[in-house]
Design a binder for these strands. Structure first.
Lengths: 151, 151
DNA sequence: CATAATTATATTGTGCGCAATAGGATTTTG
DNA sequence: CAAAATCCTATTGCGCACAATATAATTATG
C-alpha cells in the first residue's frame, strides 16, 4: 500500500469526525428539545433571540450562517408554534422583525434549567477542555470560511 | 446579569461550533466535488467503497451512521451517475451489494490528487494538531453516542 | 423625478437526515 | 413444516440547507 493511501480513509478525516459529531449532537438534543417542540436549528434561532429580542431575518441569518431559503420556512414554523411573531418593519417594509412571544421568552427558563445541564453532562469534560475544544473548532471553521467565502 | 446566563450564548456553545464547522466543510468541499459531480455525503459513501469494494447498504450505513432512508435514494443517485452498481445478493436476496464501477474506481485518483491536498491546505495546520483535534472530536461524538444510542 | 441598481425576504427545486411504516426474504420456534 | 419473529431495503413525510429565481421596497443615478 502506498504511503499516501491512508489519507482517504474515513477514520483519518477531520471532516467526517466533525460531520459525525454534528449528527451526534442532533440526536442528543432531540429528546430534550421534544419537550419544547423545537428542532435543533429552531433552538439556535431561539438562542439568538434570547440574547437580543427583535431582530431581522438578515441579522439572524448573519449570526447563524443561514439564508432566507432556510430561515423563512423555519420562522413560519416557529410562529405557528407560538414562539415568535413576524412583523414588517414600519420604516423599511422590506425587513421582517422577529420577536419572542411570552411563550418564547418562557422557553428560555426550561432551556437553562433542563437542556443546558443535560447536554453538559453528556459532553462530560471539564470547562477548560471544553473551552479549548470550542476555540479550536471555531478556528477551523474560520479557516474554512476565509478560503471559501459565502453570504 | 446572573452568572449562569452566559451558558445560553451562541458563541459559548460547542454544539454550535461543531454544527457551524460541519457546514463550513460542506461549503469548502463543494467546488472541489463539483468536478466529480458528487455531494459531500455521496463522497463519504465513495470513501467507504474505496476502502473495500462490494459492501451492503447496512455495512455502509453502520460506518457512516446513516439509515436506509438516507442511503437508498443517495445510492440510486450514485448509480445514475455511473459511480456504482447495486445488485441483490444471490445468497440473501434481502441484501443489496453496492460495488464501484470503473468510473467510480477512477474517481479515487482525482480525490487523492486534487481534493485531499486542497482541503489539507484550507484546514492549514500541522499533522499533529490535526490528529489531536480529530481525536477530540471523535471522543466527543462517542460520548454523545454512548448517552443517546441509535441504529 | 423617472429609471436603474440595490436590498430584504420569499419561493422553488434538489439533496440530505431521520422517524415511521411497509414489503419481502430469511430465520426461529412450536 | 407451518406460523411467528426477525432482518434488510425501500418508501413516505417532514424539516433543514442551499442555489437560483422572483418580488417588492428602498436607494442611487442621470
Amino acid at each position: 500500500m502506498k504511503p499516501q493511501d491512508n489519507v482517504l480513509k474515513l477514520e483519518q478525516q477531520l471532516c467526517f469526525a466533525v460531520y459525525s459529531a454534528a449528527h451526534a449532537f442532533n440526536r442528543a438534543y432531540k429528546p430534550l428539545l421534544d419537550s419544547l417542540g423545537l428542532t435543533y436549528p429552531q433552538y439556535i434561532v431561539m438562542m439568538v433571540l434570547w440574547e437580543r429580542n427583535g431582530q431581522t431575518v438578515k441579522e439572524i441569518g448573519a449570526k447563524l450562517d443561514l439564508d432566507s431559503g432556510t430561515l423563512s420556512p423555519l420562522l413560519k414554523r416557529l410562529e405557528k408554534l407560538g414562539m415568535i411573531t413576524r412583523t414588517r418593519d414600519e420604516n423599511d417594509e422590506r425587513q421582517v422583525v422577529v420577536s419572542l412571544t411570552e411563550q418564547g421568552k418562557a422557553a428560555r427558563r426550561q432551556a437553562l434549567d433542563k437542556i443546558v445541564p443535560a447536554i453538559g453532562n453528556l459532553v462530560g469534560c471539564g470547562v477548560d477542555d471544553l473551552d479549548e475544544m470550542r476555540n479550536r473548532v471555531i478556528k477551523l471553521k474560520t479557516a474554512l470560511d476565509t478560503a471559501v467565502p459565502h453570504g
